[in-house]
Design a protein around this nucleic acid. Structure first.
Lengths: 233, 233
DNA sequence: GGATGTGAAAGTGTTCACAGCC
DNA sequence: GGCTGTGAACACTTTCACATCC
């Protein structure tokens, strides 16, 4: 079995999908599943699932498949999901508020423990069951609570500054919602969430698949033609 | 130059990043850029940028680099971003509302033209400058407006049903925010947005990078600044 | 001189196919 | 019989390195 071999990043990115699927299957009362069935459920090949898991050990039984709750427990353990990870959010605009009050984190291993902004009008306002704090307090709180994960939810123009602040405070993983490229030091994890970028790649296939549809809307005004610039929250 | 060769999907997924970066550079007044500089800005290699672009044509000038606004226009055209794409959102909960009233779509080529739900309490409520409609009206509206893109923002349990409805109505690209695996027919584009899955893959590196976390503060790269203050919150 | 565009090489990731085990 | 775990084959992606052109 594949110990000692470096685990490809792409494998690590698939593990949460397995967790999601296995949790659903467990909730449906399914006790056992083969790589073929799990693959069909998720939309990947059976070989890929077996290969992915082989990087971490042997979790199945030949002739039988995998015990759902066992495999779920194991993959969660591999990902470090046996605890709840505290996170901080910077940016208390619409997006930051939505993130801070999102109730889908807790059941999957995460919890927003503080929301920050630098706008005096927002500081002190309630968001979910938290209160917006001055971003100046971030370093103290991150250190005090040992927070390792930060979420950037400010406009593009301020995002790098916020990321720097987070890293200096001890944050080790940054989830960036701002539509701009951030730079972090070696060793700090950085991932972008940019649904618009995903949409933009999908339109490539819409236009190139011969579906020359009735044009509904043209870029409205001269401004739109040039505008991909710094969107707001 | 690389005409006729099938364009790798991974290249198409990077194009929006180029658009984002080029728009920022243009806004900053930068007229010309080399693949090396653009690569540094985005965080990819110069060779990758040149190779990616070579699938679509020749956009640079040897010895000089790329003209920012020209390249931006070209990449937008390749992606089909010379028009505004109408989209429908299903699910008018917190997430659906946030999506429907997000003002970052318009400047990047998209517009939510309708929001649907099946909850009578939500139907008729205003969301942004729209009003929540009964999901039963979706097929008629999608057909009438020629909408090709649908956003799923309902709970996992209802997501597949919604996706089916969308596809039957003529939707060709589905952006799924529900944390569950969806299945769509061949030829329909499907992409997931699952920030929690991204977080879960980041924790893998947090636990396995020898940072055996003491629930309290750690010396981050620099010296352990400041005394340990009492946990707030 | 300087930077592109691109075949070829190197590196990664996925699929195959089957020995081995339940 | 059925299904896992895995080396080997294959496919895909990135990087190299250089001929080419401004």
């Amino acid at each position: 079995m594949g110990r000692d071999v470096e685990v490809p990043e792409t494998v690590v990115r698939r593990l949460p999908i397995y967790v999601r699927a296995l949790a659903q299957l467990e909730a449906e009362g399914i006790k056992t599943i083969s790589s073929l069935e799990l693959g069909r459920f998720i939309g990947v090949t059976a070989a890929q699932i077996r290969k992915d898991l082989s990087y971490f050990g042997e979790f199945g039984k030949q002739g039988r498949g995998y015990e759902v709750s066992h495999l779920l427990r194991e993959v969660r353990r591999i990902l470090g999901l046996t605890r709840v990870w505290p996170m901080v959010v910077v940016g208390a605009g619409r997006l930051g508020q939505a993130i801070a009050s999102y109730d889908g984190f807790k059941p999957r291993g995460f919890e927003v423990v503080a929301v920050f902004d630098n706008d005096p009008a927002k500081i002190g306002q309630p968001v979910g069951h938290l209160v917006v704090r001055d971003v100046d307090e971030l370093p103290a709180i991150v250190r005090a609570l040992g927070v390792k994960i930060g979420i950037v939810a400010v406009p593009a123009a301020e995002a790098q500054k916020v990321a720097n602040l987070m890293v200096d405070a001890g944050i080790r993983a940054v989830l960036n919602y701002a539509p701009t490229a951030l730079h972090v030091p070696e060793g700090i994890r950085l991932e972008d969430v940019d649904p618009v970028a995903i949409l933009q790649s999908m339109t490539y296939y819409l236009v190139s698949s011969g579906d020359h549809d009735p044009v509904v809307a043209e870029p409205s005004g001269a401004a739109a033609a040039g505008g991909d610039s710094a969107p707001e929250l």
